[in-house]
Amino acid sequence: MSLSAFAVVGALCLSMALIEAWLLVGLLASPDGMLQRLLPNRSDLVRSHIDYLMMALFLFAFYGLCRLSGAAPQGWLIAGACFGACFNPFAFLVQAALPEFRTAPPAIFTAIVMLSCLATSIGFGATAWLIAARAVNS
């Protein structure tokens, strides 16, 4: 996976955040409408929206910092960061639609969330250290 994946997935995450912003506007405009039935847990929708914004920012920042520093993370690190950047906020979106997942999530959902958090931590964490090492050695 190439460095450009950070930029492409960043654009995807920003697009999701914008879609969710419009969903939140719809929920405010019609609190008893169809959207309220589809997304009954507004607080998790807000969490997903903020998380997608943060992930977009991280991805764009990491793309720029890697380009500027010349750091070249391995493809699996980029893939891990990108997978987590997409799925971590998506888990909140699932909980917005299925509030029962907050208290009694299926085992597969919990396993995927844990895998996603691990992939995100390793992908972003190791890439951050690669960037720092390049900066120190420059």
Rank of each mutant, 00 (worst) to 15 (best):
M1C: 15
S2E: 04
A5C: 12
F6G: 11
V9P: 07
V9M: 07
A11I: 10
A11L: 11
L12E: 08
L12F: 12
L14Q: 06
A17Q: 03
A17V: 06
L18G: 06
L18F: 12
E20A: 07
A21T: 15
A21Y: 06
W22L: 08
W22K: 05
L24D: 08
V25G: 08
G26K: 13
A29M: 13
A29F: 13
A29T: 11
A29G: 14
S30I: 10
M34G: 07
M34V: 15
L39N: 01
L39S: 07
L39K: 07
R42Q: 13
R42F: 10
R42M: 15
S43K: 08
D44E: 14
L45M: 05
S48Y: 10
H49N: 12
I50V: 11
I50H: 03
D51K: 05
M55A: 09
M55D: 00
M55V: 09
A56M: 01
F58T: 13
F58D: 03
L59C: 02
F60C: 01
F60H: 05
A61K: 14
Y63W: 15
Y63C: 15
G64I: 13
C66T: 01
S69D: 04
P73H: 15
Q74R: 14
G75E: 05
L77N: 04
I78K: 05
A79T: 12
A79N: 15
A79P: 03
G80A: 05
A81Q: 04
F83P: 07
A85N: 01
F87I: 14
N88R: 05
P89T: 07
F90L: 14
F92W: 15
L93I: 10
V94P: 04
V94H: 11
Q95M: 15
Q95K: 15
A97G: 09
A97F: 00
L98G: 00
P99Y: 08
E100L: 06
F101W: 05
T103I: 10
A104P: 00
P105G: 11
I108G: 00
T110N: 07
A111G: 04
V113F: 13
M114H: 08
L115C: 07
S116R: 00
S116N: 13
C117I: 14
S121N: 09
I122Q: 03
G123K: 01
F124N: 05
G125Y: 12
G125E: 03
A126I: 09
T127E: 09
A128W: 04
L130P: 00
A133G: 03
R134Y: 02
R134E: 03
R134V: 01
A135W: 08
V136A: 06
V136P: 02
N137T: 06
